[in-house]
Design a protein around this nucleic acid. Structure first.
Lengths: 348, 348
DNA sequence: ATGAAAGCGCTAACAT
DNA sequence: ATGTTAGCGCTTTCAT
């Protein structure tokens, strides 16, 4: 069907080795004179030769393709924009380096090994890899390098590299901001469905630490709100006149839904309730009020992940086994001074 | 390095053909007894054998991977959500059929052929393929099947299949809606940067047709607004007291930016100006006011594209060379009756 | 500088 | 029912 290197060689009256060298420039044990090279190129062109990458991949044992695993590909478009940026950031680096990016849909753990070990991928970026023993075992027996994004670095050293943001530090920025505005009773909110998400867990821990550090008092169970997906619990919670004047949401999207619920419950935002989100994307500009949020440097993180992965593929041992990026804080319109600071520092 | 089918065969005392048949179930000229099969499986397991897909791909000349080309991958996250849905829709079908999806970044036309003809892809979904002769030539010489999404079907028949929505019909729904509300002077808005986008062109044509049909008068040049990316022209335009009472935006994101500009210029929406977008995603729920918009059935379109492509890969000639899906209309809060219908039908 | 030939790991026709 | 073998298209070592 397609014209092969052999046919080009025959037509040009040279060996396949010469054609390979000239057209693909690989190998250094073969030398071809300029005239011959030009001739070969001409023949190849006229025959409309297209190199077969699959054959080459088999031979050199490299595909220049890396996989990217999302745990929930199906809800990409309605999920946080965060994923998209991550995706773009990784893709940007890969494409610049002439790698392809292959999406691996949510796959059963059993299938992962066969997917990652079938020779089609040179490496993989794994988003939200969990820390359970099963995953660690998997990392261990995986024949290609892995970089995990937004996953907590495991306590035992592994072959994989972990890239994430400083979730605790990010939440501390949020608490700091709210406390500076005068808030004392602050709640932390997440969806029941996100219970297992490593980032959520880290942020909750950060919340406890920060509350202790910034207000001097420990957060209690009633300061932690675990609600359902679209936060139907809100109106009941608000009706019970909670002492809180601000809510920190574990994610951007959660904050968006909270704004929706609060608005439709008749609250005036941010006067009645200050709201902070996590992840500061374009999305935060489109909510009303615009969402104040912790910002993780997604593009830098994605670029670090991809760059490190490519280095590993090239056989260089990673410099670090984990990278943690500091967060920043973007103040927008969803936070303000509390209407009535319940636990003001200096009640006169 | 990795254990091959040959080593399994040797360890099990059988032929490679037997191993291949048992483990991968391919070929029908080979029969293996149950006991032998069980034994082979056992050996393979104990040797931790992993089939090499690259070798198999070379042999069977199939990769079970399809490519997806976006013209502007880099601005995915900040672009219209439309792309994401498309992406998910295509991916959903592919994954269900055990195909992989490979992202092809914006590539120079010269590179396209080498990318699509290198044997690594069984087919490709091409988003926003333009209709120029160059692209048509490319389609013609492309060795794998192509499905074009949201591209106008060319007038001359091609090997590719085209999937798009009825842009004209969609715009007509918008005009109908506005006219029913009492609007007579309606503008059509797009960004200068989108000049070449086929969808935009089709929608503008649809605008002209619909205005003629629904109001009886032709739209003029001043009814067509070609502004810069973030619509900085808005305030000047509005200050000049244009006769228009409504604007139809070529895209969802354009409409969002228009809302931002109008709001910051002090307009009260939708009272001062009715706004309609194109593409009705989650994004339309997050603007203030919520965006009334034409809705194209993206998931169905994506599914049709992917399904058709897979059929073509399997050698079945496509039933149709183009699929056009009807649009629907989602009324939200960004449209209302005009404050003062300038050209009311029956001025008393 | 150039060519011959041996595989990469797998599949499938063919032979037994 | 099972084994032998010839490739898929390319790279690369080794002779010349």
């Amino acid at each position: 069907m397609a014209v092969t290197i052999r046919e080009v060689a025959k037509a040009a009256g040279v060996s396949t080795a010469a054609v390979s060298k000239v057209l693909h420039g690989r190998g250094n044990s073969v030398r071809v004179s300029d005239v011959r090279a030009a001739h070969i190129r001409e023949i190849a062109e006229s025959l409309n030769y297209r190199p077969n990458a699959v054959a080459r991949n088999l031979r050199i044992r490299r595909t220049h393709a890396v996989g990217i695993i999302f745990e929930n590909f199906g809800s990409f478009a309605n999920g946080p924009l965060y994923y998209m940026h991550l995706f773009e950031g990784v893709g940007g680096v890969l494409f610049k380096n002439h790698y392809r990016m292959t999406i691996l849909a949510e796959i059963a753990h059993d299938d992962v090994l066969s997917s990652l070990g079938d020779g089609q991928l040179d490496g993989v970026v794994w988003c939200k890899l969990t820390r359970d023993p099963e995953s660690l075992a998997l990392i261990h027996s995986c024949p290609i390098p892995i970089v995990a994004m937004n996953a907590p670095a495991p306590t035992v050293p592994t072959e994989a590299v972990f890239v994430s943001c400083d979730n605790e530090g990010g939440i501390d920025l949020a608490v700091q901001h709210l406390v500076a505005l005068g808030h004392r009773r602050i709640a932390f909110l997440y969806e029941r469905q996100e219970l297992d998400t490593p980032d959520r867990q880290a942020r909750l821990e950060g919340f406890h630490d920060a509350m202790k550090a910034r207000t001097g008092v420990d957060a209690t169970a009633e300061d932690v709100l675990e609600w359902d997906w679209l936060l139907p619990e809100f109106s009941g919670w608000w009706a019970a006149k909670p002492p809180h004047t601000a809510i920190i949401c574990w994610s951007e999207r959660t904050a968006g839904n909270l704004i929706l619920q609060a608005t439709s419950a008749g609250l005036s935002l941010p006067g009645d309730l200050s709201i902070v989100g996590f992840d500061s994307t374009q999305y935060c500009e489109t909510t009303t009020p615009r969402l104040t949020a912790v910002c993780q440097p997604i593009y830098e993180m994605a670029a670090a992940a991809a760059t490190t992965l490519l280095a590993m593929i090239d056989g260089m041992p990673p410099i670090q086994s984990s990278f943690t990026f500091p967060c920043t804080f973007d103040v927008r319109d969803s936070t303000t001074t509390p209407r009535s600071p319940l636990n003001a520092e200096n009640p006169s």
